[in-house]
């Protein structure tokens, strides 16, 4: 029982983590909290659904094309909305992404309406794995594996490639980074593209578990932010662990303490963490030179 709850929590936590990583990449490179990340992912998922259902593409092809759509969508948002806001107060960008959140939700509503759709998954009917007597659904394994792959890939990209290192340099000191030949706008566009890509993958993985509708990502976005804050928004691994902890804690509080207050308890924990340690459990204070 408790092992099942923990596995379920880890699988949910990995989904939170994917959205959170999408947010954190953008946040760390551009200092903007993207409150539209959830709706961007929702739109990508609907695009994948359209490819699958209306065009009849095979699952893998549809997902690959949708991932590219997510990437392009992120870059477009950055170019159209975020770029003109460079240099204005942080609050402006937060409010602009909140507005984009409403826009994308309405756009999806206009195109697909507010009914629910069933999003197919090739793993839905596979027999569960058995690990030490605990039945682990294949979807959970896929979620956890994809989550790990993304965190590994992102860490490698940011630490071992020139582009990634340039982006990290740009986030620390824009002037010096520019002197070293790093394009700030390009870094920002790449960060938003990656955010759109990772968020879209999260949406495609989450859609089969719940029904696909325009409110697909609302709760997930809030959880992702919460888990990210818990772990520390400036550390990728911290965000990942924070989201996993959140997923497990949620499952356990719902089962043992109070099913209805699970969400509220989670938020109380997060507020407590914010009060005691605003930089998060694994975070560190970001030193930034103008």
């Amino acid at each position: 029982m408790i092992a099942n709850l923990i596995v379920g929590g880890l699988a949910a936590g990995c989904l939170y983590a994917m959205v959170a990583i999408a947010i954190v990449i953008v946040l760390n490179i551009t200092d903007i909290a993207n409150f539209a990340q959830g709706e961007m992912a929702m739109l990508t998922t609907f695009f994948a659904y359209w490819l699958l259902d209306d065009l009849g593409l095979p699952w893998w092809q549809a997902v690959a094309i949708a991932a590219v759509f997510g990437l392009v969508q992120g870059v477009i948002v950055q170019q159209v909305i975020i770029r003109p806001l460079i240099g204005s107060p942080v609050l402006s960008a937060i409010i602009a992404t909140l507005g984009l959140n409403v826009v994308l939700n309405s756009v999806a509503g206009l195109i697909w309406g507010h009914q629910t759709y069933t999003f197919p998954s090739p793993f839905a009917f596979s027999a569960p794995f058995h690990v030490g007597g605990v039945a682990v659904p294949v979807t959970s394994v896929v979620n956890i594996a994809v989550g790990l792959a993304i965190i590994l890939g992102m860490t490698l990209f940011l630490r071992a490639t020139w582009t990634g290192m340039g982006m990290r340099a740009a986030s620390q000191n824009q002037t010096v980074a520019r002197l070293m030949g790093v394009s700030i706008t390009k870094s920002s566009a790449i960060a938003w593209g990656l955010g759109g890509l990772v968020g879209g993958i999260a949406g495609i993985l989450v859609a089969p578990a719940v029904f696909l509708d325009t409110n697909l990502m609302g709760a997930l976005l809030i959880k992702a932010f919460a888990g990210g804050v818990l772990g520390g928004l400036n550390s990728l691994i911290g965000v990942f662990l924070g989201c996993l902890a959140l997923g497990v804690a949620e499952n356990l509080t719902s089962a043992y303490l109070s099913p209805s207050f699970g969400e509220a308890i989670t938020f109380l924990v997060i507020i407590a963490v914010l009060i005691v340690r605003p930089e998060g459990v694994f975070g560190h204070v970001k030193v930034r030179k103008a």
Partner: peptide
Amino acid sequence: IKDAPGLVFGVVLVMVMVFMP
């Protein structure tokens, strides 16, 4: 028009932020 209020609202919100803070 269903969904139009939300759309107009969001667009105006973003445009106000970008063009007339």
